[in-house]
Design a protein around this nucleic acid. Sequence first.
DNA 1: CGCCGGTTTGAAGAATTTCAAAGGGAGTGG
DNA 2: CCACTCCCTTTGAAATTCTTCAAACCGGCG
Lengths: 258, 258
Amino acid sequence: MAVTSPPRLSALVRKLQADSKLTNEQSAAILALPAIFREFRAGQEVVREGDRPSQCCLILDGLACRFKIVGDGARQIHSYHIVGDIPDLQSLHLARMDHNLACLRSTQVAFITHTALRELIKVHPNVGQKLWRETLIDASIFREWMSNIGRRPAITRIAHVLCELLVRYRAMGLAQDMVIPQPITQTELGDAQGLSTVHVNRSMQELKDEGLAVLSGRNIKILDYERLAEIGDFDPAYLHLCEMPDMIEARAYTDRCN
Amino acid sequence: MAVTSPPRLSALVRKLQADSKLTNEQSAAILALPAIFREFRAGQEVVREGDRPSQCCLILDGLACRFKIVGDGARQIHSYHIVGDIPDLQSLHLARMDHNLACLRSTQVAFITHTALRELIKVHPNVGQKLWRETLIDASIFREWMSNIGRRPAITRIAHVLCELLVRYRAMGLAQDMVIPQPITQTELGDAQGLSTVHVNRSMQELKDEGLAVLSGRNIKILDYERLAEIGDFDPAYLHLCEMPDMIEARAYTDRCN
DNA sequence: CGCCGGTTTGAAGAATTTCAAAGGGAGTGG
DNA sequence: CCACTCCCTTTGAAATTCTTCAAACCGGCG
């Protein structure tokens, strides 16, 4: 179950070049990180609230989320994590997990020890800055979701999160066909945006009736990104995607740029 | 209006010792940071969405908040910032502001240039790690607020945020008398927790009727922290306060510790 | 075929917002 | 020192959004 280092960490290299290129040495150092690869089934938890991890996990394929269970048992999803993300990077500096990390679909991850990451950062401070930057983008997404949940109506929230997912996948070179490449259930959308499953369903139907987004098999297909972004009050600036390697297409979804 | 460097940056030193002590050299380097001091009136904005700051701002006194205005004009407050906070630290790695920073009360700040901070981090990588850690704690608070807004009823949200403010002030050695030392209006509480002013008012009345918290002049006084934390579903673990210099008292509000 | 996870539907109920107006306290200017 | 103003709190009542409950539906899969 635990193999060492095929050239699979390239997803991380790609992600970290969002703002500016890495040098060859930096890329090489990342690709050479010692990693343990593992596959999780849908529903499995990777790290739990209260844990004190000694490693971070890089998503190679699939879909994960961070979440908390509140007093009455309800789940709040804080973020979705796709290929290239390191959802528990914060554990490098915050000893104790204050939330959970679980896989929503069947998911492949690479575990990299804190020790190895610290060594990488020491030798390549620029990579350290880029990792810091990634955690700041996470925080920016949290803020946007907070605005969503706190101050926007249900239909807007759903449209918004669909836009975000699409743009993030496309920034990683996926979802060319405007289909979000991982299925996301309506319950999961509700737990992310503070809505009941029933109400998500009704919002999705509105989006369908308007010709903005539909279910394509088990996946969500965006039919009219422009109008979806409009009713979703969506401006991708908060994703800080600019200077992506393939900005040619990412730029189409980004009006303002860093 | 712009003076240079009295020994006022000590609030930052105190804040950064949350997890572990700084060395004397590190403290000295922080205290020696070149800073420009300025006072803002209540309501004034410090940085705006779209800005590209070349400096960060340290709160020395008063109260600031980060916020966004959504499509229909409503305001979502993302966080409150008290003495010792650097609310726009993320601007060090994210060029463009994706939200606003404003003062809620009359507030004193110290501006420190990115250049000076980068130099500090280069010379003292440990301080850099501590600054990174601060941004991760911000993110942790965002997650908790997201859970609050998305999945907890109004009364719980209000109780929760009052507990948080009290604990954060006490961790900085303030609010000994269980009074939150800055006034916070019900509109501000509502904008932070996704509620209308009217509903905040009714929730506050419930808290008053239960003998948990009251208005003491313009300020909020916590009467029964234990029960307030209970109905607020509040566990301070997400504040990652442990190993504070004065843990003697902070520990009283922290059941679990890093 | 029958189960399973996810979607869809209808109807009733609850939480929260909105609107509109009154009340209160602290500071300001005459 | 009073009157006035401003900002914030408080109140009542109606409207709305969203949740809950309960059940049916649907497509894929063992």
